[in-house]
């Protein structure tokens, strides 16, 4: 799936998907769930948190 297609599926721009991939932007919880839903996986399969 292309970045543009994923962005369109979850309601953000391609550049925001790129920023999320490069860890330059932490998406909202809603967008996080939307991305996980697109791939039919759980939220923690897509996103992780390394802590402070």
């Amino acid at each position: 799936m292309s970045q543009a297609a994923l962005g369109e599926a979850v309601g953000v721009t391609r550049h925001t998907i790129i920023a999320i991939e490069q860890a330059r932007y932490s998406p909202s919880l809603e967008t996080g769930f939307r991305i996980a839903r697109v791939f039919n996986v759980g939220l923690e399969d897509v996103f992780g948190w390394e802590g402070d």
């Binding site: 309601g11 953000v12 721009t13 550049h15 925001t16 920023a19 932007y25 998406p27 909202s28």
Partner: peptide, 11 residues
């Protein structure tokens, strides 16, 4: 296409 798309959450 980009011009007509609404501002997203990061923007």
């Amino acid at each position: 296409r980009e011009a007509s798309s609404p501002v997203d959450e990061r923007e």
